[in-house]
Amino acid sequence: MSDWIRVCALDEIAPQGSRVVASSQGNIAIFRTADDAVFGLHDKCPHKGGPLSQGIVHGETVTCPLHGFKIGLKDGAAVAPDKGCARRFAVKAEGGAVWLQLN
């Protein structure tokens, strides 16, 4: 397991919003929910690769902007009956900042 890397201040992500992080492992979407939980997913929808970071966040789910797959932020899995899974990244909010761990 690699180290925690600081991404940005928590305030730099809107509640129910997201930011894109460019990394050596591709683009990662960092989401912040209405109650300030943070999650990280590979920014590629399991359907046709849509940028999940651009979707609408509701509860602990994001709806892909291209064709409306709903993806669980916790597990990256598409909500049934859709199928597929986006890769997860460990993310935490601590001391007012957001941290990411690359796999």
């Binding site: 890397i5 991404v7 940005c8 930011r19 894109v20 992080v21 460019a22 050596s24 960092i30 690359l102």
Partner: peptide
């Protein structure tokens, strides 16, 4: 403007 900015990580290689 932040909405449009991509965050670039300082990864330690």
């Amino acid at each position: 403007r932040r909405e449009y900015q991509v965050i670039r990580l300082e990864e330690v290689t």
